[in-house]
Design a binder for these strands. Structure first.
Lengths: 343, 343
DNA sequence: GCCCTGCTCTACAACGTTGTAGGATCGCCG
DNA sequence: CGGCGATCCTACAACGTTGTAGAGCAGGGC
């Protein structure tokens, strides 16, 4: 049986509350008393019961993180960063996977597990415009992603359009003119796909290049496989791109694979740019040029905002979008292999 | 303010305990009473406070999962499977990352966060022989991995030696004779590296092939980069392998990259086999032949064992090692590309 | 010399739930 | 028709912690 404050108090000859005060760093305690308590704690191997504290204080020190699935590299790395950031603020993380299934996404918002957590970092895929009211929950919520933009909550997002435009402009700057877009969601007006397509088209437009629908490759879910399939579709339709802007790195790696299988050289024949800066792209062949959306800062910001709200921070919902960067690799510039130690 | 059982009881005109009984499915309740309670619950949007229940029952329904980091694909996929398995048993998962740092690995075993969880699934990297006593903890622990073998706890592991032997025999069966091993930890006698090296050597031995130290590539951490470096080292030393058995998929992908950069064809010049069956290997170019160690079953078994222990299951520590399989891809047999839907 | 302030500590209640013990009612058996 | 077990429900205490209120005491200012 684990020791309780009772046991420590008895052994140290003080009241339970004094033990509590010592444990919580209350200042007005005589050094002699504190020492007796600390000694008793050490002798009994006492550790505080967090459940009891949580019940009493109404806060748990746990936050939830809802993502599609950890098997997707971006979300695995995001979870890594969130756990790291939470740790440094003294918080623990519970991860929930929704797999992009709307029903699970809703359940996560309302399930009883929410009583176990002080707040939630929420990255939906299925929810969209019209679901804003679902986000009006009785606990702090920080929204990630690009599915909903006018919810009543703090929102950390990427500079999707700007970054996509910059990536496309970078390709234009290399002299490429027939730039394919991989990962398009036709008909959608929200979400990363729509925003990145906007940026892509804006860059073409500004450069006086007419967008060619034949160069747009559809991909619902952004996996390696769907990237390869979308690339194949574009090529099969007879389009002859000299570059590819894929809406995430998994798509880019799939597309690159397809290009290579068909004997096209990357980057000589076709340059490839991705989005997300996952670690895998540092070691692909060739290494992948990609947009670094500031994943770590997104994670840190989300945790910081959420932590603030759990401690009562009031005020208007915040909207934050960290700066992005472009990491150049061998998939656009021959021999320009990114090393593992580069940022 | 969220509703409590008090509120529900008042509204339904029953005692608090009756509400508790309804919530917990106690059978002896008149249907009329049950209906009144359920109605009140619905009207008040009542949800049980898990913290209070946890305090009262002494169990939390949460289990911990300690892994090196989620950025490593194998552990991200393992976490995915563990969360899935836990969910299906009604458990929640807290993930802790130790990064292979001994100090963190020890802290995870003893930290106060353990009071938040009913038990721990623990996959250390730094701990080793001599640390068995650290595993003698006052809560249920299920050990993963190959660092410690005689701890006083349940242990779910892979059939490392058999699987490594089978992988090597498979390469021998293809007629390959100069098979490099990538990921060796010289001097180590425990851990996946030592066991897989044993299997590799046993297969060579049985086939009458003399092991060549020049074909063994060292790699401390099993990342893509270290795989490429180890491969380079082997080749630079003048060895001319016709196959590579890499001790995990990340190493294999790194090694394959290095081979291709040097103009060697995979699999024609050099066949490559990995270990872990991560999703990434399904889409690499060529797709990767690999050992499927039964990750999902490992996760399910670990959760099941842990859950049993948390509910008081007694008895000797269990040792479980699911069966393995070999997934054949293009990295060993030309044109034999694994599809995404294959097991 | 007395009051006030600040320090140090204690007793008690409360957080929301469930286990235990037992009271009331009913049907059925002898 | 008395007794007994099953059914249905309630009151109370307890899980281990922290907030609140306040007691006791020392030191300083007047």
């Amino acid at each position: 049986m684990a020791a309780t404050m009772q046991d420590v108090a008895r052994r140290a000859g003080v009241s339970v509350k004094t033990v509590s005060n010592v444990v919580n760093g209350y200042p007005h305690i005589r050094p002699a008393t504190r020492d007796r308590v600390l000694t008793a704690i050490a002798e009994l191997d006492y550790q505080i019961n967090l459940t009891a504290r949580n019940l009493r204080t109404g806060r748990t020190g746990i936050i939830g993180l809802a993502v599609p699935e950890l098997s997707l590299p971006y979300f695995a790395e995001l979870a890594d960063s969130v756990i790291e950031a939470a740790e440094s603020e003294g918080l623990t993380v519970i991860i929930e996977q929704h797999g992009g299934r709307r029903e699970r996404e809703v359940e996560i918002l309302t399930g009883s597990r929410r009583h176990l957590t002080d707040g939630l970092i929420y990255s939906p895929l299925a929810l969209g415009p019209g679901d804003e009211r679902l986000l009006d929950v009785p606990y702090p919520l920080v929204l990630l992603g690009e599915r909903i933009f006018h919810g009543p909550v703090d929102h950390v997002t990427m500079r999707n359009t700007d970054a996509a435009r910059a990536a496309t402009e970078y390709l234009l700057g290399l002299g490429r003119r027939r730039i394919a877009a991989v990962g398009v969601h036709p008909g959608e007006e929200v979400g990363s796909a729509a925003l990145r397509l906007d940026g892509y088209r804006a860059a073409l437009d500004a450069a006086g290049v007419r967008p060619d629908p034949a160069l747009e490759g559809e991909a619902g879910l952004w996996h390696r496989r769907t990237g390869a399939e979308a690339m194949a579709e574009v090529l099969d339709r007879g389009a002859r791109p000299d570059a590819v802007f894929a809406f995430n790195d998994a798509l880019a790696l799939g597309a690159m694979h397809e290009l290579q299988v068909r004997g096209l050289r990357v980057p000589e024949d076709v340059a490839v740019v991705g989005f997300d800066a996952i670690d895998e792209g540092r070691y692909s062949n060739p290494t992948l040029t990609t947009v670094d959306p500031g994943r770590e800062e997104i994670a840190r910001t989300a945790v910081r905002l959420l932590h603030g709200r759990t401690r009562g921070a009031a005020g208007e919902p915040q909207r934050v979008a960290p700066p992005f960067g472009i990491l150049v690799g061998g998939s656009t510039e021959p021999g320009r292999e990114r090393s593992a130690s580069e940022p």
